[in-house]
Design a binder for these strands. Structure first.
Lengths: 210, 210
DNA sequence: TCCTGTGAATTAGTTCACAGCG
DNA sequence: CGCTGTGAACTAATTCACAGGA
């Protein structure tokens, strides 16, 4: 396990894993870097380089054993473990994410939902009761939460995240378009949906001038 | 307007715009590259370089005129125009995205929602009636749609997108964890929520070994 | 022969550092 | 002076190209 792996590499590994699981379900025993690259939208050299940072998993002349590589990628990404996740904020996006089957399937289990709105507190989403965000620290300790997903209104995000971090959470997935200011030891990933649409707008307007 | 701008640069410009609009609302007349960088989580040199690809918008010794720069970034990103967007798929994530105020505020107007499920067709979301995906091409033409957001089940995504593209849409925001195969002239942005969580899992498991 | 694994070459992206204008 | 704008230097990421094992 080497020094420092680029974020872009880690993201591609997660993508490879998705397609490998598909191959696995279709019963393919092996896969070449070329076949995997085609599916994942990259090049065979990139696939081999990405994997080579972690070891030599393939057989020359043959390719990679699908099930074996799935296992290795699970280990590399740290998915052998089930992660306990809190959803902070109970708006529509939060609701969609809580219901999103893909998370649970891949070992991310949402164990609590909190909000500050008295209208929402007490309401149940599936088998989860929305709790009062005032008790954030107690809930995080009780549920042994490791990851927080932030989906609050913009003006509440920083304050809320400070409390989440104070309660011991060190990994955050942030959907709020705000730059969170946090200690270095906390990992944050930002998902900014308007940025995605705006890059499309950019592509649309600058296309003709190529 | 130069040759080829890196995707990373375009994304940062969109982020700068978000913070500049905040500065504008707070009534700040000017902003320095340092102040903007701090907010956006980058460096002042990066801010200046990003902007310099498109022109010289600042005043030496003073910084950037906030309102002026907001206007320039609007133009650069192509946000002077209102985009007509179709939501393909009417599941929970689609619902959350349709309601998401941020899109409309920034000029992305969802003008139609389609699904194949007879239970959903005819149901209204806000002022939008969910229509039959069988009529995708008619709807896209009728509503003069320019951007499609894909939020279907995984196995329907490619087929659906083929029909969307055949109907003339050239910009796609894809939330389905599938690699879409499309003609080069179509722009696609993929948002893969499990990949985001898995990079956090990677960070969590590899932290201690640093 | 086929396809991996990997140094070397290349290309892309970021940071430095400073000239020059307000 | 202060802060931008920008080549030049540097660092990171991708692609090439081929040696070598199955």
């Amino acid at each position: 396990m080497p020094r420092k792996i680029a974020d872009s590499t880690v993201r591609r590994l997660a993508v490879y894993l998705q397609f490998l699981e598909e191959f696995q379900q279709h019963g393919y025993p092996t896969v070449s870097s070329t076949a995997l690259a085609e599916r994942a939208g990259t090049t065979s050299a990139q696939v081999r380089k990405d994997l080579s940072f972690f070891g030599s998993f393939g057989k020359r002349g043959l390719g990679y054993d699908v099930s074996g590589l799935v296992r290795r990628l699970h280990d590399i990404l740290g998915l052998h473990h089930r992660y306990r996740v809190i959803m902070v904020g109970a708006g529509r996006l939060a609701g969609a994410l809580v219901q999103y089957a893909g998370f649970r399937e891949r070992g991310f289990q949402i164990v609590a939902v909190v909000d500050t709105d008295p209208e929402k507190i007490g309401v149940s989403w599936r088998d989860l009761r929305i709790e009062d965000a005032a008790h954030l620290d107690t809930i995080i300790a009780r549920e042994r939460v490791e990851i927080a997903i932030i989906a609050t209104p913009a003006d509440a995000a920083q304050e809320t995240v400070d409390r989440v971090v104070a309660a011991g959470v060190t990994a955050i997935l942030n959907f709020v378009p705000v730059q969170l200011h946090l200690p270095r030891e906390v990992d944050v990933k930002n998902v900014n949906l308007t940025v995605e649409l705006e890059t499309l707008a950019y592509a649309l307007t600058h296309r003709r001038s190529a």
